[in-house]
Write a protein that binds this DNA or RNA. Structure first.
Length: 374
DNA sequence: AAAACAGACAACCGCGGCTAG
DNA sequence: ACTAGCCGCGGTTGTCTGTTT
């Protein structure tokens, strides 16, 4: 038994909105608000549209203070970094970009940013290859020296100054080549990617050896359940405390579910850019994020142990990354991006797991970020 | 000139969460 | 406790416009 349709499909207009329809919808909402019921709204104002269509039109286009196009370099960087950190959770990413809608960012990523990024990464990879091959035998993963110097961070620690340089990716050392086995699962389904990313941002401390599943278990009521939480309490208790307090939207349950986001976003801000100009983007919307940036920026050891994780042994996802290399070539961040952006498993493949993991509880939180005060 | 193609953006669709009754 | 129906999300499709052949 399927769900009843939200409106009479036969009696509803589809496709692009006319200026008249826009005017009708906008003037009504300007005067009366949405009335808390999108489904009933079109009938009320005599629009032959589905309520969902009205909502979408308002949120993505008619709503005041919406920016279209003209993404800045800072915005590009932030989107890319957040995508790496938390995946395609566009509403959360959009919450970090004032005036941008999730739909806009999603489209922008799919049509341009992804390609732009790949192009750059390929170029970097090519140019770096020769240099790295000389030192190949020095870079077995168990003997990698990790320091914040491994990160290409602009303006301060970086020795690169090219304006079109991607600044925020860690420079991965060369890993021992592992032949790609066609039978083996590649690092290309969203669940695996997500798992890896959560590990990436979620376990900075080497003192803890929690099961991966725990990371995804957002149903726990304890806010200290995640390795991500433990990391902060073990490295910098006051940092953890502030993150928890700041990211406590309304209940500890929500905070538990969102603490991963909090830390991933915080970490992303650090990865992205420790300098003020980036943080300015975030100010005005919610100074929480700039606080996070400041907090994490002052704790570079987070990144160090973060890289430790990437190169750590007996990590399933790590192996998947390594096996994702099609040849005996060294594996760089570009290869990882290739894996990240291809989802041959098709749509909705991770819905079940996500739901079971309780990761779908974030709507209220992201809404709060997106529409503070609403 | 026009057909074919490609890129960008707008809009739709279905699903799962949530909640009022 | 149950459930009908709205809300919001993210993947996908449709449409428009510019470019290439």
């Amino acid at each position: 038994m399927g769900r009843a349709p939200c409106c009479d499909k036969a009696n509803v207009k589809k496709g692009p909105w006319s200026p008249e329809e826009d005017a009708k919808l906008k003037s009504y909402i300007d005067q009366h608000g949405t009335g808390g019921n999108w489904i009933a709204l079109p009938q009320k104002i005599g629009l032959k549209r589905c309520g969902k269509s009205c909502r979408l039109r308002w949120l993505n286009y008619l709503r005041p203070n919406i920016k279209h196009g003209g993404f800045s370099e800072e915005e590009d960087n932030l989107i890319c970094s957040l995508y790496i950190s938390i995946g395609s959770r566009w509403s959360i990413i959009a919450a970090q970009l004032p005036g941008r809608t999730d739909n806009d960012i999603k489209n922008y990523w799919n049509t341009r940013l992804k390609k732009k990024l790949l192009g750059k990464q390929r170029k970097e990879h090519q140019s770096r290859k020769g240099k790295l091959q000389d030192h190949h035998h020095h870079h077995h993963h168990h003997q990698v020296k990790r320091s914040s110097g491994n990160l290409v961070v602009p303006n301060n620690t970086s020795n690169t100054n090219s304006s079109d340089q991607i600044h925020y990716w860690p420079e991965l050392p060369v890993l021992a080549p592992i032949p790609y086995s066609t039978g083996e699962q590649r690092f290309n389904d969203h669940a695996a990617i997500r798992k890896f990313l959560i590990k990436l941002g979620g376990r900075f401390s080497q003192d803890h050896d929690l099961d991966d599943v725990m990371i995804l278990d957002g149903t726990s009521s304890s806010s200290l359940q995640f390795p991500a939480d433990q990391l902060l309490s073990s490295t910098t208790p006051q940092l953890y405390e502030q993150l928890s307090i700041n990211y406590m939207p309304s209940s500890s349950m929500e905070a538990s579910n969102n603490s991963i986001d909090a830390q991933l976003i915080a970490q992303t801000l650090y990865n992205l850019d420790g300098t003020d100009h980036h943080l300015q983007v975030l100010q005005g919307q919610n100074n929480l994020h700039s606080e996070l940036g400041d907090l994490v920026y002052s704790n570079p050891q987070i990144i160090d142990s973060n890289l430790e994780l990437i190169y750590s042994e007996n990590t399933t996802v790590d192996n998947r990354i390594m096996t994702s290399a099609a040849s005996g070539e060294s594996i760089g961040w570009g290869d990882m991006m290739n894996a990240l952006i291809s989802h041959p498993a098709g749509p909705n493949y991770d819905h079940q797991e996500m739901q079971q993991a309780g990761m779908m509880q974030e709507c209220a939180f992201s809404d709060q970020l997106r529409y503070p005060g609403m």
